[in-house]
Amino acid sequence: MSIHFILVLNRQGKTRLAKWFNNNYTLQDKQRFVSEIHRLISSRDSRHQSNFVEYQSNKLVYRRYAGLYFISSIDLIDSELSYLESLHFLVEILDVYFNNVCELDMVFNFYKLYNIVDEIYLGGEIQEISKQKILDRLAYLDKLD
Protein backbone atom coordinates (compact mmCIF):
# COMPACT_ATOMS: atom_id res chain seq x y z
CA MET A 1 0.00 0.00 0.00
CA SER A 2 2.75 2.44 0.78
CA ILE A 3 6.35 3.15 -0.06
CA HIS A 4 8.83 0.93 1.76
CA PHE A 5 11.77 3.25 1.36
CA ILE A 6 13.12 6.13 -0.66
CA LEU A 7 16.77 6.26 -1.63
CA VAL A 8 18.82 8.86 -3.41
CA LEU A 9 22.11 7.44 -4.63
CA ASN A 10 24.75 9.00 -6.80
CA ARG A 11 26.34 7.18 -9.69
CA GLN A 12 29.18 5.93 -7.51
CA GLY A 13 26.65 4.38 -5.14
CA LYS A 14 27.06 6.91 -2.32
CA THR A 15 23.87 7.48 -0.39
CA ARG A 16 22.54 11.03 -0.44
CA LEU A 17 19.24 10.21 1.21
CA ALA A 18 17.89 7.08 2.81
CA LYS A 19 14.42 7.16 4.26
CA TRP A 20 13.17 3.81 5.48
CA PHE A 21 9.43 3.77 6.05
CA ASN A 22 9.32 0.05 6.63
CA ASN A 23 10.74 -0.53 10.09
CA ASN A 24 11.42 -4.22 9.70
CA TYR A 25 14.86 -3.90 8.17
CA THR A 26 18.04 -4.35 10.17
CA LEU A 27 21.14 -2.23 9.69
CA GLN A 28 22.73 -5.08 7.72
CA ASP A 29 19.67 -5.38 5.48
CA LYS A 30 19.79 -1.70 4.72
CA GLN A 31 23.46 -1.72 3.83
CA ARG A 32 22.97 -4.75 1.61
CA PHE A 33 19.93 -3.23 -0.09
CA VAL A 34 21.79 -0.04 -0.90
CA SER A 35 24.70 -1.78 -2.56
CA GLU A 36 22.55 -4.33 -4.37
CA ILE A 37 20.12 -1.72 -5.60
CA HIS A 38 22.91 0.49 -6.84
CA ARG A 39 24.42 -2.39 -8.75
CA LEU A 40 21.03 -3.35 -10.16
CA ILE A 41 19.98 0.10 -11.26
CA SER A 42 23.24 1.54 -12.48
CA SER A 43 23.61 -1.40 -14.84
CA ARG A 44 20.29 -0.70 -16.51
CA ASP A 45 20.08 1.09 -19.77
CA SER A 46 18.03 4.24 -19.25
CA ARG A 47 17.07 4.73 -22.87
CA HIS A 48 15.91 1.22 -23.67
CA GLN A 49 14.66 0.04 -20.33
CA SER A 50 11.70 0.96 -18.21
CA ASN A 51 12.03 2.75 -14.91
CA PHE A 52 10.71 -0.23 -13.01
CA VAL A 53 12.54 -3.26 -11.83
CA GLU A 54 11.58 -6.01 -9.45
CA TYR A 55 13.79 -6.35 -6.43
CA GLN A 56 13.18 -9.08 -3.87
CA SER A 57 9.46 -9.17 -3.33
CA ASN A 58 8.92 -5.52 -4.16
CA LYS A 59 9.20 -3.26 -7.13
CA LEU A 60 11.67 -0.43 -7.48
CA VAL A 61 10.52 2.67 -9.27
CA TYR A 62 13.45 4.90 -10.08
CA ARG A 63 14.56 7.73 -12.24
CA ARG A 64 17.91 9.29 -12.89
CA TYR A 65 18.28 13.04 -12.61
CA ALA A 66 21.76 14.14 -13.74
CA GLY A 67 24.12 12.10 -11.56
CA LEU A 68 21.56 11.04 -8.99
CA TYR A 69 19.21 8.09 -8.87
CA PHE A 70 15.93 8.69 -7.09
CA ILE A 71 14.51 5.33 -6.06
CA SER A 72 11.41 4.25 -4.23
CA SER A 73 10.35 0.73 -3.37
CA ILE A 74 6.67 -0.16 -3.65
CA ASP A 75 4.48 -3.25 -3.46
CA LEU A 76 4.03 -5.37 -6.56
CA ILE A 77 0.35 -4.51 -6.76
CA ASP A 78 0.86 -0.76 -6.53
CA SER A 79 0.85 1.52 -9.52
CA GLU A 80 4.35 2.15 -10.82
CA LEU A 81 3.28 5.07 -12.95
CA SER A 82 1.89 7.19 -10.15
CA TYR A 83 4.87 6.59 -7.87
CA LEU A 84 7.16 7.56 -10.71
CA GLU A 85 5.19 10.75 -11.03
CA SER A 86 5.56 11.27 -7.31
CA LEU A 87 9.36 11.01 -7.54
CA HIS A 88 9.30 13.69 -10.18
CA PHE A 89 7.15 15.78 -7.86
CA LEU A 90 9.82 15.48 -5.16
CA VAL A 91 12.56 16.50 -7.56
CA GLU A 92 10.58 19.50 -8.76
CA ILE A 93 10.16 20.67 -5.18
CA LEU A 94 13.89 20.23 -4.52
CA ASP A 95 14.66 22.17 -7.65
CA VAL A 96 12.59 25.16 -6.61
CA TYR A 97 13.65 25.00 -2.97
CA PHE A 98 17.37 24.89 -3.66
CA ASN A 99 17.05 27.01 -6.78
CA ASN A 100 18.49 24.63 -9.36
CA VAL A 101 19.36 21.78 -7.10
CA CYS A 102 22.68 19.99 -7.49
CA GLU A 103 24.25 17.08 -5.65
CA LEU A 104 26.32 19.34 -3.41
CA ASP A 105 23.18 21.07 -2.10
CA MET A 106 21.98 17.70 -0.99
CA VAL A 107 25.29 16.76 0.61
CA PHE A 108 25.57 19.86 2.77
CA ASN A 109 21.87 20.30 3.45
CA PHE A 110 20.94 16.70 4.02
CA TYR A 111 18.76 17.61 7.01
CA LYS A 112 16.76 20.03 4.86
CA LEU A 113 16.32 17.26 2.36
CA TYR A 114 14.78 15.11 5.08
CA ASN A 115 12.53 17.97 6.14
CA ILE A 116 11.27 18.27 2.58
CA VAL A 117 10.64 14.55 2.29
CA ASP A 118 8.73 14.70 5.56
CA GLU A 119 6.44 17.37 4.18
CA ILE A 120 5.61 15.30 1.09
CA TYR A 121 5.47 11.80 2.55
CA LEU A 122 4.32 10.57 5.93
CA GLY A 123 4.97 6.98 6.91
CA GLY A 124 5.39 6.11 3.26
CA GLU A 125 2.14 7.71 2.14
CA ILE A 126 1.86 10.79 -0.01
CA GLN A 127 0.46 13.44 2.32
CA GLU A 128 0.58 16.66 0.32
CA ILE A 129 0.17 17.15 -3.41
CA SER A 130 0.28 20.90 -3.83
CA LYS A 131 3.73 22.19 -4.68
CA GLN A 132 2.91 25.72 -3.63
CA LYS A 133 1.63 24.66 -0.23
CA ILE A 134 4.73 22.60 0.47
CA LEU A 135 7.11 25.36 -0.59
CA ASP A 136 5.25 27.97 1.46
CA ARG A 137 5.27 25.69 4.47
CA LEU A 138 8.99 24.95 4.15
CA ALA A 139 9.81 28.63 3.86
CA TYR A 140 7.78 29.34 6.96
CA LEU A 141 9.23 26.49 9.00
CA ASP A 142 12.77 27.54 8.15
CA LYS A 143 12.04 30.95 9.62
CA LEU A 144 10.58 29.64 12.87
CA ASP A 145 12.50 30.06 16.12
Binding site: S79, S82, E85, S86, F89, I126, I129, S130, K131, Q132, K133
Partner: peptide
Protein backbone atom coordinates in the same frame (compact mmCIF):
# COMPACT_ATOMS: atom_id res chain seq x y z
CA UNK B 1 -2.87 25.30 -11.29
CA UNK B 2 -1.85 24.02 -7.90
CA UNK B 3 -2.80 20.43 -8.55
CA UNK B 4 -2.23 20.21 -12.25
CA UNK B 5 0.50 17.94 -13.61
CA UNK B 6 1.26 18.69 -17.25
CA UNK B 7 -2.39 19.22 -18.13
CA UNK B 8 -3.74 16.34 -16.09
CA UNK B 9 -5.93 17.48 -13.21
CA UNK B 10 -4.76 16.19 -9.84
CA UNK B 11 -3.43 12.77 -10.84
CA UNK B 12 -2.41 11.71 -7.34
CA UNK B 13 -5.86 12.26 -5.93
CA UNK B 14 -7.56 10.61 -8.91
CA UNK B 15 -5.32 7.57 -8.64
CA UNK B 16 -6.01 7.22 -4.93
CA UNK B 17 -9.75 7.72 -5.40
CA UNK B 18 -9.78 5.00 -8.04
CA UNK B 19 -7.73 2.54 -6.04
Amino acid sequence: PDYDVMGTPDPFLQVTLLS
